[in-house]
């Protein structure tokens, strides 16, 4: 049973998508796990549906979207800090995320 605020796109996926902004410290049910969210996440971001080892493929829509750059635990925010493209590196503006959250 997974929280209503999360979307599972394909059963084999390693991530769920956040349906709406969720604050740091909130409790979420992901599969059989109950986790406390370590960071605030905004709509459209991803959380780990299952634990992933460093170097393993990250699956979303049932397809690989890159690989983990560190071990990732269930419920952790999955983004640029712990995954990378297997094609071309991702360009992001530092500071833009904090600006967006305001």
């Amino acid at each position: 049973m997974t929280d209503d605020r999360l979307i599972i796109l394909a059963p084999q996926d390693s991530v769920v998508v956040v349906r709406c902004g969720i604050s740091k410290g909130e409790t979420l049910i992901i599969g059989d796990d109950e986790i406390i969210l370590g960071v605030a996440v905004s709509m459209g971001h991803k959380l780990a549906l299952r634990s992933v080892g460093k170097g393993d493929a990250i699956l979303k829509y049932g397809a690989p979207i890159g690989s983990a750059t560190s071990d990732i635990l269930v419920g952790e925010h999955v983004h640029l800090h712990n995954m990378k493209s297997d094609y071309t590196p991702t360009y992001a503006l530092e500071g833009a995320q904090t600006e967006f959250e305001k």
Partner: peptide
């Protein structure tokens, strides 16, 4: 795109939760 050094991926894509070009592609 590999020659250019950037994917078809803008900074705002990452702010919005997309992490890689493959994810944006799907």
């Amino acid at each position: 795109y590999a020659t250019l050094g950037f994917g078809s991926f803008a900074a705002g894509n990452a702010d919005g939760g997309l992490s890689t070009i493959e994810e944006k592609s799907m």
